[in-house]
């Protein structure tokens, strides 16, 4: 959990994944061949026994966040979202950029009319208050274009992990673990960039890799709430590894799906599948790029995805880890 904590509390929006990549490099150096492609994807190749097909695992290093787009005369920052963020999760949240902290400003409740209170907020109505004196000072300290993050947070309560950027540091953590435990067969691990802005990293990585089987390790939506723990919840915390059959970006390979469920059953790994067609990930790019590939996705379910703190279950995390390892020993032979 210590490494997961370090990964989640490090910052890296899409295109600015350097911090995450340097943690990864330190962890895996000496264990595999490491290279970086022109786009910035980190590619780690582990040599084991040969197998017929090229097997690649993918997890993305980037997280959702913000970029400062402008300051007004008073030094309040306007911003744009990087990745999909619902404005409703933002007001009052603590953000940071470098060492500087700020808060997302809102109109105080005292001044809101009854109808204001029912209006849905949009990102363009919001601003970040970094405590700058004026525009000049603001632009000097944090120039326009600076990346802004949710405040780094990581704690555990019972079986639940509460953290920033579980999507997809949890997948990164699993891949590091796989590399450390020395896969039996040749395996390539791709730490991708820019998943949250449209899977651009995976597309460029997949172009050169000539993947036969691509396995995406993700953190995926659970819409579990006090009112919903049935079909509309998509996935449930504690429900086990999510093996995807279909989502908004991908119809997964039905044979790999069947094999994954078989491996899970055989190894006593708890698993579930999505009850709604929801979400999407690097699989859609890996599947369609160049000669194409067969794809599968194993995910950890998380509530509050793409907000300041997401919540995942420790046991689900171990289920995905165990499944990814067991699966890697039987595919592409």
């Amino acid at each position: 959990m210590k490494l997961l904590k370090r990964l989640c509390t490090a910052n890296g929006i899409s295109g600015r994944e350097e911090n995450i990549k340097s943690i990864i490099k330190k962890e895996i150096s000496g264990l595999c061949d490491i290279s970086e492609d022109r786009f910035g994807n980190l590619i780690a190749t582990v040599h084991g026994k040969k197998r017929d097909k090229r097997v690649c695992y993918f997890a993305h290093t980037d997280e959702v966040g913000f970029i400062i787009s402008d300051y007004d005369e008073q030094g309040f920052a306007r911003f744009v979202n990087v990745g999909g963020i619902d404005a409703a999760v933002l007001p009052g949240k603590v953000l940071c950029s470098g060492r500087r902290k700020g808060v997302i400003g809102v109109c105080p409740v005292h001044l809101l009319s009854a109808s204001d209170k029912e209006t849905v907020l949009k990102s363009e109505d919001l601003f970040i208050d970094f405590g700058f004196e004026d525009k000049k000072q603001a632009e000097k300290r944090l120039p326009v274009g600076s990346a802004v993050y949710f405040e780094p947070t990581f704690y555990q309560a019972g079986n639940e992990i509460f953290a920033k950027a579980l999507d997809d540091r949890i997948g990164v953590r699993i891949m590091i673990d796989m590399i450390k435990s020395k896969p039996l067969y040749d395996t390539t691990f791709v730490f991708t960039c820019c998943e949250e802005t449209g899977t651009q990293g995976a597309e460029t990585a997949a172009y050169g890799l000539n993947t036969d089987i691509g396995v995406i390790l993700e953190c995926t939506t659970s819409a579990q709430t006090p009112d919903e723990n049935g079909g509309k919840a998509v996935t449930l915390l504690g429900g086990g590894a999510v093996i995807s059959y279909r989502d908004n970006g991908t119809m997964y390979d039905t044979e790999l799906f069947a094999l994954a469920t078989f491996v899970a059953e055989k190894n006593g790994i708890k698993w579930q599948t999505k009850t709604l067609v929801a979400g999407g990930n690097d699989a859609s790019a890996v599947q369609k790029t160049a000669y194409g590939a067969s794809v599968a996705a194993f995910s950890v379910a998380a509530r509050n995805l793409h907000s300041a703190i997401s919540v995942a279950n420790k046991n689900d995390y171990f289920s995905v880890l165990k499944l990814a390892k067991a699966f890697n020993d039987v595919i592409g032979l």
Binding site: G230, G231, Y245, M251, T275, L276, V277
Partner: peptide
């Protein structure tokens, strides 16, 4: 695609 069986016995589904 049959997705999720409700308590009543009907299946929620998605379309291709």
């Amino acid at each position: 695609l049959a997705m999720y069986a409700e308590e009543e016995g009907n299946y929620r589904f998605s379309v291709f």
